[in-house]
């Protein structure tokens, strides 16, 4: 059992990091800090994917000799399958776009928080709940 975990030691700190982000999301009422927690969680998920793609002794997935147009196909014929190891490019592609999409959606969330602040005067969720459910402002909310 310990062997199995030691071979996969990378997942354990990443799970702790993911859960730290989740904890921030649940435990704080401040909406900005909650979004920070969400992106902490998100970045840790990126780490999970990229460690999946790691190959020991591998290179970054950039093939040196596929460069020329003339001999690209010829070089690839005997070059690609040789002993050079590369890390798996597929998770890299998925995460690369996810990072940029992540910041765009973070911006939407922050824009919502800014609008909430303008409408309610607070970004603490308990204050927001109180404003929504209290009898005085019930009609407005």
């Amino acid at each position: 059992m310990l062997d199995i975990l030691l071979e996969r030691f990378n997942y354990i700190p990443i799970i702790i990091l993911m859960m730290t982000g989740l904890y921030v999301v649940f435990a704080t009422g401040n909406l900005v800090k909650r979004l920070v927690g969400l992106s902490l969680f998100q970045t840790s998920v990126f780490l999970l994917y990229i460690t999946l793609a790691k190959v020991f002794g591998g290179q970054p997935p950039i093939i040196a000799d596929a460069h020329g147009d003339d001999h690209g196909a010829a070089a690839a014929g005997h070059g690609a399958a040789e002993a050079v190891l590369y890390s798996n490019p597929l998770p890299h592609v998925l995460i690369l776009t996810a990072i940029v999409v992540g910041v765009a959606t973070l911006a939407v969330g922050l824009a919502l928080v800014v609008r909430i602040r303008e409408a309610y005067g607070s970004i603490e969720d308990e204050a927001l709940n109180a404003a929504d459910y209290s009898r005085d402002t019930g009609a407005a909310g």
Binding site: A66, A73, A80, A81
Partner: peptide, 21 residues
């Protein structure tokens, strides 16, 4: 992932596999 590594030089001939995929 390995298929992409092996096929990219034949199909696309771009060194950076990530860009190709």
């Amino acid at each position: 992932g390995r298929d992409y590594l092996e096929q990219t030089p034949h199909d696309i001939a771009v060194p950076n596999i990530v860009t190709a995929v």
